[in-house]
């Protein structure tokens, strides 16, 4: 009885006080279905470095390098990548091809208008489009994961077209950056 009591009390405490900050994954079961995410996490431990890193600045962080530019912006309800972003994608495709250990996460985003779930699908379409172009440029499928944050991560919070246009975007992140 005493044991049961203690167990239930702890379970209840966990149930309420425990509505935990979810930065830690403690207490959350990972199932077989999550192996893809496992891969991603393993990938995120790989820090992509240029051959003689240490002597050279990381081109991904160098503001003078096109590789430091990471965002592609879209028209309302559209997911096609405009021609002006092709050189940017070309540069990232080259980098990924030259650094086969590097991994990229493409996060698609939408502005806040409309259904949250439809906006996840729209952001996914945007991120998938970026991934597809990178693949056509020679990047291995396994190096890029495309996901959507829908309208949940706006860069700009006001209800203006100027703001909305900043939120309709795909962001390219390399392993270690997310």
């Amino acid at each position: 009885m005493r044991k049961l009591f203690a167990f239930v009390a702890v379970a209840l405490l966990a149930a309420c006080a425990g509505t935990p900050e979810m930065e830690s994954k403690a207490g959350v079961e990972d199932r077989a279905a999550t192996s893809a995410a496992g891969d991603r996490q393993a990938g995120s431990a790989v820090t992509p470095v240029a051959p003689n890193a240490g002597q050279q600045a990381n081109p991904l962080k160098d503001p003078g390098s096109i590789l430091s530019k990471r965002s592609i912006f879209y028209d309302y309800d559209k997911y096609d990548v405009k021609d002006e972003y092709k050189p940017l994608l070309q540069a990232h495709a080259r980098y990924l091809a030259q650094n086969p250990g590097a991994k990229m996460l493409v996060q698609g985003n939408a502005d806040e208008r409309g259904s949250r779930e439809y906006n996840i699908a729209l952001g996914q379409k945007r991120a998938d489009g970026v991934k597809k172009i990178l693949q056509l440029m020679g990047v291995k499928e396994s190096q890029v994961e495309s996901v959507s944050l829908g309208e949940e991560k706006p860069r700009c919070a006001e209800a203006t077209e100027e703001c909305y246009s900043k939120n309709r975007r795909s962001d390219m992140l390399y392993g270690g950056e997310y």
Partner: peptide, 29 residues
């Protein structure tokens, strides 16, 4: 979105515990 992408969970209101229902490559929603 706690894993930086959408993942589907099923949360028991009785036990307060939850489990991952869908966490595949890409988005789950």
């Amino acid at each position: 979105f706690e894993n930086k992408k959408p993942v589907v969970y099923v949360h028991s209101l009785v036990s307060g515990r939850r489990q991952v229902a869908a966490n595949f490559k890409g988005s789950n929603s």
